[in-house]
């Protein structure tokens, strides 16, 4: 009887160790190709930092980049606009909610960067781009607690390896802490360092 109980305990313990978190758990969805909405709330302050530091149109705010960053001062997603019969680019109805009402009322033509805040849909695309870049390493970082600097997302801007955009921020800087905290937010007691993200944005 005692032996059977021991076996039962071992089986249960083993089963819980093998449990695979469902899509959408933690900083990155385990399956970045999974359909469905993504809760971008914890990512919002991190997205702002990535948009400012990495997402300019001449860097990762480009459709040609494996790491593609959408943002309000850079690349916008197709869902932010429509093209009418005359070829004019106009804001989509969905995005008008994020536009300065004065700008929207004055002219519904696409106002360009800086006028409409980054939408949750664009942030979700940023998450999918980041998490899909190195899915195996990302899984190790998010689920197994491997150092986040192992990811290109940090090793490149820290210039730990070759980066055409050179060094974007220093190790231990506010930007580094902001992004790393998001990646480690799935770990016990982990949480996004929102203060670091906000303070990082104060530096132009």
């Amino acid at each position: 009887m005692k032996r059977a109980l021991s076996l039962f305990v071992i089986v249960v313990a083993t089963a819980s160790c093998l449990e695979v978190p469902s899509a959408g758990v933690g900083a990155c969805p385990v399956d970045v190709t999974a359909e469905g909405a993504l809760d971008v709330t914890p990512f919002m302050p991190v997205s702002s930092v990535l948009e400012q530091r990495c997402g300019s149109l001449d860097c990762h705010g480009s459709l040609g980049r494996p790491l593609r960053i959408y943002g309000y001062t850079g690349l916008r997603h197709a869902a932010t606009y429509t093209v009418d019969e005359s070829g004019q680019v106009r804001l989509s109805e969905e995005v008008k909610a994020y536009v300065d009402p004065v700008v929207a009322e004055a002219n519904d033509l696409y106002p360009g960067g800086g006028s409409a805040a980054t939408s949750p849909a664009e942030m979700a695309l940023n998450v999918r781009s980041i998490c899909g870049l190195q899915p195996e390493v990302m899984r190790q970082v998010v689920l197994d607690g491997v150092a986040p600097e192992k990811l290109l997302l940090l090793s490149k801007p820290l210039h730990l390896e070759r980066h055409k955009g050179w060094k974007v921020f220093e190790r231990g800087s506010l930007d580094h802490r902001c992004i790393a905290s998001w990646l480690q937010s799935t770990q016990p007691s982990g949480e996004v360092d929102e203060d670091a993200c906000k303070e990082a944005l104060a530096v132009p």
Binding site: Y81, V89, Y110
Partner: peptide, 9 residues
């Protein structure tokens, strides 16, 4: 060109 999702114009 004119402002668009890939350019501020």
């Amino acid at each position: 060109g004119r402002p668009s999702p890939i350019s501020p114009g």
